[in-house]
């Protein structure tokens, strides 16, 4: 049976193998997988913005800092071991460029940095990432193997 858990924008989900975690159409957003291979438990977050501090609130799952905290606590409840946790991520692209406004704000890059920083703070090693560029990604994480499958429209597919 195809047991795939879909994660929407500004949301996160956790699960156990043999489930897979998937999020569709990442642009400047970041998909972050945090997993414990030994316990076969993982979570996937679809993060939209770097930090809850510089914005005017709303759903905590929009921001890198608050969303990852919530997901880590759910992973813990599900039985994942904090010292076994590892991470992979994808996304953070720049989908549009406006002529004459070259690098005014690259929200994708700021998202990448924010996620890296939060992982470092939490002491979770980032095993692999596929970030940046100017194209969208759909990602699928296999909880049983720890593989992250990345699909794009013009840049082929890869596994990290």
């Amino acid at each position: 049976m195809n047991n795939t858990i879909i994660v929407g924008m500004a949301d996160y989900k956790v699960g156990k193998s043999p489930a897979k975690l998937m999020t569709v159409g990442l642009g400047s957003c970041i998909g972050v997988c945090i997993y414990d291979l030994q316990s076969q438990i993982a979570g996937l977050a679809h993060i939209m913005l770097p930090s809850s501090g510089e914005n005017s609130g709303g759903k905590e799952t929009k921001y890198a800092d608050t969303c990852l905290k919530l997901m880590l606590s759910d992973l813990d409840k599900l039985g994942a071991k904090a010292n076994k946790l590892k991470a992979k991520m994808a996304g953070g692209a720049q989908m549009f460029s406006f002529a004459g406004k070259a690098s005014l704000l690259k929200i994708g890059e700021r998202n990448i940095l924010a996620v890296e920083q939060e992982l470092k703070k939490a002491g979770i090693p980032l095993m692999a990432s596929d970030v940046g560029g100017t194209y969208g990604r759909t990602i699928n994480f296999d909880i049983s193997t720890g593989e992250l499958f990345i699909k794009t429209i013009n840049q082929g597919e890869k596994v990290i």
């Binding site: 500004a10 159409g25 913005l49 005017s56 549009f96 002529a99 929200i107 194209y135 794009t152």
Partner: peptide
């Protein structure tokens, strides 16, 4: 000025939504 994207619709919507650094729930 107009920007053009040819890609996954979801990726372009997410990028457009967070242009400007904030987004409503």
């Amino acid at each position: 000025v107009p920007a053009l994207g040819i890609d996954m619709i979801g990726a372009m919507i997410d990028a457009a939504l967070i242009e400007g650094g904030r987004v409503d729930d």
